[in-house]
Each structure stands twice: as C-alpha cells, then as structure tokens.
C-alpha cells in the first residue's frame, strides 16, 4: 500500500510507484491525489519545449547542474512520444542526464505521451504534484519535440523556455501564432553553430510588434551552447528573474488560479463525458437509434440534445455522481 507519509519523507520508491499508479489510472488514484494535494504548490515548475533535436535534454541536464549548485532538490519529467501504432514508446531523454543518476537530490522520470497531443502526457500535471510533495523545489518538465502548436506546457509551467536553434526558419516563422507566443524566455541553443544574430533580430522584431509586453515581462533571449558551456549561467539567472517578477507582479498567483480552474473543469468534463457514454450505451434501443441515424431518419443534433436532457433529468432521481 502506498503511503503519502512516506512520499513526504522523500521515499524514492514510493514516489516512483505513485507515478506509475497515476499514469496507469490505477485504483485509488483520485484518493491518493487528493491526499497529496495539500502538500503541493511549493515547487517552481520550469517548462522546456522546442523542436526535436533542439537540445532540450542536454539543456535540462545543465539546468539540473545549476539547481544542484544552489543546493535545491530537483525533479525532472521528460516526455517522449508514444507510438500511435503499437502504443509503445522509446524514452531516451535520460541518456543526456546520466551524470545526475546517483545524486540523491535528483529524481528523473520518463513518460510516454500515451495518446495526448499537446506535447505532454495526460498524467504529467499530476506527476508534477507527486514530485512537489516529494520535496522537489525545482521541477523541470521537458516536452516531446514539438512542432508549432503543442502548447500544453504553457498551462503547467511557471516559467516556459522555448528552445530554438540558429538558422531554423526565416522571419515568417517568428511571426506565426503558436509556439513563439508561449515563451517566457527564448533560448537559442547550439549557438556555437553561428548566425544567432539574425534570429535575435527576428525575435526582437516580433516582440516589438506586440503590445502585450508593454510595462510587463518581455521574454528575454538567452544564447546558449551546451557544447561549449556558454550562456547557461545567464539563462539560469533569467529563470530566477522571471520567477521573481511573476511573484512580485501577482502574475504567478493569477496563472496558478487559472490553472486550477482549468483543472477542476477538465476533471468534471471527463467525469460527465464518462457518465454520458454510460447513459448512451445503457439505452437498450441504441442499435435502433444508430440505424435511424445512418438512414437519415434521425439526426445527431437532436439526439445529442435528447441525451443531455435525459441525463440531466436523471440526476435528481438519486443518480449518484
């Protein structure tokens, strides 16, 4: 039996087993999470996102090093894609972080996306909570290699890093909607490859055109090279500055509140969806209905409304939610 008290004491095996249970939607998950919840909310969650091969894992490794240098306990959640064909996954982010494998102050967990399309797994948000309660002061969430619109990380992280590489796209790429809009800090990694200046200018021009940043945090651009070990110190200090800014301005509180309201409604949605399916399948005449729909004798729009009506009518009759 998994005990929250052991998690709070920092028992590694308990943390790992709880993460598995949550990932697998195992029995007792909700109970466990509601017990954990009061002990969360302390960690600074840093999101690292960017295209495949941009150097997210290597950069994460460097951030772990800095956080450990400040004597902070670190959790890492590294997400890689699950195969839509087999359901399997190759989780390879750890390879870049093996230096910290034996450090008791570092906990690294790899996750497959398991069907989620937003760059993270459905369970990632809850795994953050486990690591938070486990005592991690810094939690780094590394997304899958993303394209332009896998943006879930913006809702989970307190500070989002968008990792770019020199020469990736012309200036039109920087003015497209999506990934370029969610950065709190831009990182031009692999700057040893040269030609970062053009990208710096493109980003600056994009930011100049947006009134969103007037009088507020304007995403700075860090130039890093993990290979030559340059720019990491500056990046680490920018991350600290961003946290301080959001704390002082009240933006952190606001985004935590937004995140929580999303969480509650999403969980409720999920539950209602499950109950609606139950109701729909329970209806003995479903085959008839599907026939009618296929024959165009009934239409999905009215049937959907009827389903909701029946569902709501049932609630006062003692249907337990």
């Amino acid at each position: 039996m998994l005990q929250v008290s052991k998690l709070l004491e920092g028992d590694k095996r308990t943390a790992a087993k709880m993460i598995t249970l949550i990932e697998n939607d195992g029995e007792g998950k909700q109970q466990l999470l509601s017990e954990i919840y009061p002990h969360t909310g302390r960690a600074h969650v840093i999101g690292v996102t960017g295209s495949p091969g941009a150097g997210k894992s290597s950069l994460t490794d460097e951030l772990i090093k800095r956080a450990r240098g400040d004597n902070r306990k670190v959790g890492v959640i590294a997400v890689d894609p699950t195969s839509p064909i087999s359901g399997g996954a190759l989780l390879g982010d750890r390879i870049r972080m093996q230096e910290h494998a034996l450090d008791k102050g570092v906990f690294i967990r790899s996750m497959g996306t398991r069907g989620s399309l937003g760059g993270l797994a459905r369970a990632t948000r809850d795994v953050v909570k486990v690591l938070d309660a486990y005592g991690c002061e810094i939690i780094i969430v590394e997304t899958v290699g993303v394209g332009q619109s896998e943006l879930d990380i913006m809702h989970y992280a307190d500070t989002t890093l968008v990792v770019l590489t020199p020469g990736a796209g012309d200036h039109i790429q920087t003015i497209k909607a999506g990934i370029m809009e969610i950065a709190d800090i831009f990182v031009i990694n692999k700057c040893d490859l040269g030609n970062t200046k053009k990208m710096m200018i493109d980003i600056a021009q994009m930011l100049d055109m947006s009134p969103r940043f007037d009088g507020r945090w304007r995403p700075p651009v860090a130039e890093t090279s993990v290979k030559n070990n340059t720019g990491i110190e500056e990046l680490w200090s920018l991350i600290g500055q961003h946290l301080e800014y959001t704390q002082k301005s009240g933006e952190l509180d606001q985004s935590v509140r937004n995140r929580l309201s999303m969480e509650v409604v999403e969980m409720a949605e999920e539950e209602v969806r499950r109950l609606l399916w139950e109701q729909f399948n329970k209806n003995g005449s479903m085959d008839d209905l599907l026939d009618k729909l296929a024959q165009r004798e009934a239409d999905p729009y009215n049937e959907a409304r009827k389903l909701v009506q029946n569902f709501i009518c049932q609630i006062p009759n003692g249907k337990e939610l």
């Binding site: 590694k12 996954a89 494998a101 790899s110």
Partner: peptide, 22 residues
C-alpha cells in the same frame, strides 16, 4: 515503454534509474 540510458553505465546508475522509472 522502453527507457534507454545509453552506454557505459555503472551498476549503481542502472539500479537508480530502474527504481526512479519504476
């Protein structure tokens, strides 16, 4: 789900990864 940790691992590193990755 396969976690691959790369070359030249010590037994200590392997066991630690196995536990964290459950």
């Amino acid at each position: 789900e396969v976690v691959y940790t790369g070359l030249h691992q010590t037994p200590e590193q392997i066991v630690e990864a196995a536990i964290q990755e459950d």
